[in-house]
């Protein structure tokens, strides 16, 4: 187990280096002068030169990269051009809504996916199954932003049950906070639920066909007991993998969801920074997201080895 973790960690180092190089290169991919892209044409030349010097863009590129990496290693991700605050502060102010949204969406998706997938697998090839697989297909093909607008139209505009935008912290305001997160979390959760349903259904079907299930039934165990203790447990492994694989989609979905519902999260920060052409902020946030993404994938890998000894021993 320790070797697996060490091996995975080592393999991450070159990837991390390339990721930082990529993020650094981002600024230099802009056609023309990046300063012109960041500041309006009307801004006078001295202000532009000042920003150029501040960002070190007047130096040769290898020197810039070395300086940037040096700051990075000391934990300095740079400053936003717009509000002058360090990237870290910009992100830490935005992280709470994003985490709350992600956790709530995850909870919603599992609450929906498990019953639907179990019903689908147990009643394989019946109307129930078809309903379940149709739901999964619907969730996978439905663009996030469209689902968000449909929910807003139905529950916000027509029925007026829930707020359609804005954020209230549920940890401070309680119920009002939860209400402000319901529609965003359902938007994000349904797509995830669809993917989990699809995976869980097919892994349940595989597990149901195993000899040990036949043995358990032959012993005279109740079907609910067989499903709970023998089938479900063995069918969970692919679900963990899929949850890990879906992380990227989840983050992308969160970007769109936060944008539509005006949630002040990290995803919204990315979009705002992109459109404000605040490149240092874009670079910093994207680097943080990528590192977080790599770290969670690492965690999923390790978790996978922990759940399934067959992987660990390979």
């Amino acid at each position: 187990m320790g070797r697996l973790i060490a091996h995975r960690l080592l393999a991450t180092i070159p990837v991390l280096l390339l990721v930082t190089a990529g993020v650094f290169a981002l600024l230099h991919l802009t056609p023309g002068d990046p300063i012109d892209a960041m500041m309006a044409e009307s801004v006078d030349a001295t202000a532009k030169d000042a920003l150029r010097r501040e960002l070190g863009l007047d130096r040769p590129i290898p020197v810039q990269y070395a300086a940037w990496m040096g700051r990075l290693l000391r934990g300095d991700l740079g400053r936003s051009i717009r509000n002058g605050e360090p990237v870290i502060e910009n992100v830490s102010r935005r992280i709470r809504p994003s985490l709350e949204l992600a956790l709530l969406a995850m909870a919603i998706s599992l609450t929906i996916a498990f019953p639907v997938a179990i019903a689908s697998a147990v009643h394989h090839n019946t109307g129930v199954d078809r309903l379940g697989t149709t739901f999964a297909l619907f969730g996978i093909c439905m663009p996030n932003f469209l689902l968000a607008l449909l929910l807003i139209f139905l529950f916000g505009v027509t029925l007026r049950w829930l707020p359609i935008s804005g954020y209230v912290d549920p940890l401070e305001e309680g119920w009002a906070g939860v209400r402000s997160l319901v529609l965003p979390a359902v938007t994000l959760g349904l797509a995830l639920a669809a993917v989990v349903t699809r995976t869980l259904r097919s892994s349940l079907l595989d597990a149901l066909a195993e000899d040990y299930v036949r043995t358990a039934r032959a012993k005279g165990l109740a079907e609910s007991h067989v499903i709970r203790r023998h089938v479900l447990k063995n069918a969970l492994i692919p679900v963990v993998t899929v949850l890990g694989l879906q992380l990227g989609t989840l983050i992308g979905g969160a970007v769109i969801t936060e944008y539509v519902f005006a949630l002040p999260g990290v995803g919204r920060l990315v979009v705002d920074a992109v459109f404000a052409r605040d490149y240092p902020l874009v670079q910093g946030v994207i680097l943080l997201i990528a590192v977080g993404f790599i770290a969670s994938n690492l965690l999923v890998d390790v978790l996978y080895g922990w759940i399934d000894p067959r992987i660990r021993l390979r």
């Binding site: 990721v19 981002l26 970007v255 990315v270 997201i289 993404f293 790599i294």
Partner: peptide, 14 residues
């Protein structure tokens, strides 16, 4: 290592 939409967003912006 980048979430696809985030990478596309950054590249598209640049």
């Amino acid at each position: 290592s980048f979430p696809p939409l985030v990478l596309a967003l950054a590249l598209g912006a640049v």
